[in-house]
Nucleic acid binder design. Structure first.
Lengths: 149, 149
DNA sequence: CATATTGGTTCGAGAATCTGTCTTTCGTCA
DNA sequence: TGACGAAAGACAGATTCTCGAACCAATATG
């Protein structure tokens, strides 16, 4: 969003930023307080993209919009901290699947709770009806702003 | 947003992330193509917060949620590249105001055009009515997610 | 006027990121 | 089926981003 400076009418992208950042901060705070205090923001952004059956480092990199090397670097740290594990990809001997490990699942559980709490606060502020509209609009916006949904 | 992994129902914070990132990427791309290819994402995120009459480094740091040191570091780079200038704060001899310089204003102009284009695409996708709802909902959400509006 | 607070910078270290290069494996097609 | 380009992943080196600590100057407070 290169430049904005003025306070007049923030563009829709910038308006999306504030809730996103607030949610992220709340979740990171809760994780730290729950003992998951070694995970960093960069690590969690990669972690988030791991699918149920595991995901390749290359795919994680692509979805998180970072280089393969950076993704490898962050997955290394997540693995050392016990949040994920790497298993061979049965369908491709070159590839390895990054999968959520026990400690990772525990972190997910904490995150889910906080996410629900924050979302409840937002729904309370907006009203159920408008919050529903918001979710639907954002979901539709995702169709054209997220190639990897 | 520590963890999410599943594809089921992304939380509202994550849903906000996709449009935000898409807008940011489009603006950065346009800036680079217009010759503003030396500005980085981190720099632009600080730059965005500069107000019309200039803003103190401390305030930029607070709003961008980074340390004073990081803000100083990034403003140094922006200043060296000609995007901003530092002027004494007439109301406080300790402070200096970071102000947008000529090259910065040129960048803002480019950014504004792209932002409007992207927003127009989004409005086309959502329909004018729902886009209006979206903007209003996000603006109200900002009330509780952005302490520095 | 002594002291605490605030705005800002410098220093040093650690985290995150990229480009380039290399190896192994896969897929394709001649 | 075998050769070759492409893909998955890792390693190396450099740059950028970030923070905590220490510091100075100016302000505010008692």
């Amino acid at each position: 969003m290169g430049e904005e400076s003025a306070r007049e009418q923030p563009n829709l992208g910038l308006l999306c930023f504030f809730p996103y950042r607030a949610m992220e901060a709340r979740v990171m705070k809760a994780l730290a307080e729950a003992g998951f205090d070694d995970i960093t923001l960069a690590q969690s952004r990669v972690f988030q993209r791991i699918g149920r059956e595991g995901t390749r480092v290359t795919d994680l990199a692509e979805q998180a919009r970072i280089s393969k090397q950076t993704a490898t670097f962050l997955v290394d740290q997540l693995e050392r901290a016990g949040y994920v594990e790497r298993v061979p990809d049965p369908t491709d001997a070159r590839a390895r699947l990054v999968r959520i490990a026990a400690r990772g699942h525990a972190g997910v559980a904490v995150a889910r709770v906080v996410e629900a709490e924050v979302e409840a606060e937002w729904i309370r502020h907006l009203g159920k009806r408008d919050a529903g509209h918001l979710r639907r609009a954002l979901t539709r916006l995702r169709e054209i702003t997220d190639p990897y949904q």
